[in-house]
Design a protein around this nucleic acid. Sequence first.
RNA 1: UGUCUUGUGGUGUAAUUGGCAACACAUCUGAUUCUGGAUCAGAAGAGUCCAGGUUCGAGCCCUGGCAGGACAACCA
Length: 566
Amino acid sequence: MSEKDLNEKEGIKTNNFIHQLIDEDLKEGKNDQKVHTRFPPEPNGYLHIGHAKSICLNFGTALKYNGLCNLRFDDTNPSKEDVEYVDSIKEDVHWLGFDWGDREYYASDYFDKLYAFALKLIHEGKAYVDDQSAEEISRQRGTVNVPGHVSPFRDRTIEENLDLFDRMKNGEFEDGSKVLRAKIDMASPNMMFRDPILYRIIKTTHHRTGDKWCIYPMYDFTHGQCDYWEGITHSICTLEFEIHRPLYDWFINQLKDSDYRPRQIEFSRLNLTYTMMSKRKLLELVQKKLVKGWDDPRMPTICGLRRRGYTPESIRNFAERVGITKNDSVVDVALLEHSVREDLNKKVQRVMGVINPLKVVITNYPDGQIEELDAVNNPEDETMGTRKVPFSKELYIEKDDFMENPPRKFFRLSPGREVRLRYAYFITCQEVVKDENGEVVELHCTYDPATKGGNAPDGRKVKSTIHWVSVPTAVEVEVRLYDRLFNVEDPSGDKEHDFKEYLNPGSLTVLPKCYVEPFVKGSKSLDKFQFERLGYFCVDADSTSDKLVLNRTVGLKDAWAKANKN
RNA sequence: UGUCUUGUGGUGUAAUUGGCAACACAUCUGAUUCUGGAUCAGAAGAGUCCAGGUUCGAGCCCUGGCAGGACAACCA
């Protein structure tokens, strides 16, 4: 993928404040004029749309400047991580259209170097082993307004620290009994400098290093160093790490032996209306089985969106559109939905389908006759060709396309009115058949044979065109409609919420008896299409029954919903 | 009573570094079409958090406020 591909969409700006900073760095000749970024997920969950923003930024920036972008797994906490997540992350990044080449790294690749660096700090009197409990350390750290107090173990000798740290590594101590801390400044106004913890003891098998280690470095003691060793020039992360930057720089200063230095730059993470993006909570949804898995189409995960029919292009375009700034913001999910519609509209096959069937009998059409009519696959792209659609005496139309007592602006079928069946004939509704409850169950219509193909030789016009499926050849499918998972505008990530309170009970609607043209079944390669006027659908990848399961990609626009309510 | 950081239509971003606040989404009209989707045309909507200052001229510069966010895991 080239930058040009990424920028194919006219009107979408690809410049942002980070690029301006990079331009300045380049102008000043920093780091040999190189640009090298990295995408550094922790493999403790599946990637979501928020990560997509970061992926597009990091890989996109590398592409823009002819540089490289590494994929690096920040796997320093074995108690939360798993290869399942590693695999899914790789799949999702590739699917989005980015490639890290052979630069797949792991923070755990650097455990030896990190250990050696810790030793160096101890030797220089800049780190010490603290025997206090987590609670004690936390208590003496002070608060944002009051300075902390030094640990009673702060002045251990270098030899003692070396010995203790060695024994920590050798597994002589229990989890939580000792940590290695940097000796910086317990009174610093920046809490990050109050003797940050470098290493802790976790006797858990690591998904890559197994049981080789029982001490693991903390994020702050890992990230910058990894950036440094990989030759990263611009370490782009989200706003919550802003306050870590001075510490990031502090470690780099202890490490660096040349003019080269990576630079941390922060941007604001993506928030979407009606969308909950906290990894912790998404994990909870999966664990509590409130959704069927990480790829449940209601999830904002990349795999969930994929299964729902989103395309990589649409997500990349969306990421460009939301832009990169340091403002805390909440993007309207309608922008995401617009991005898919826009992309799908030009590449997706059109198919006639009926979600809520109403039977129509063409009384003057010959019994048992089936004729094939030509239908265009995509009116905006002739190269997608045409297909044959079978027509017969009995049809299904969409229930919403008929109203017995139409209001003023309803132009579709109603008693006595003539409309066009798309690609077929003009029909006129002659009779409405109801059941004992007064519910409309069937319509009797007549067709005009002269209007075959959809045009009247006498030039008469109809006000609307409706879609249909022929009963004898219809393929029965199950359609799943997914609404927004959360029914509040801003489930604001980090506050404590009861999921039940926010899960929209109507977020999944299963419509078991829907009908589509036989074409759908015959095309194995076809996984996405647009039902005429009913939105975009995607064949569910995991459907086990022989009946086709279709997921609706996006809901209908409000205008349509309103028009239908009348 | 801290450190870092952010304030531009409803939402998200722009503004050639001091020159008529622009674009997209959303909203509302209208037109057109063999899908009321798409498309096309148009409308409404901010005077840039506030108050001063510099300047012929400030969203951009200066001073002082106000409001929001992040930071007190042995998470990342």
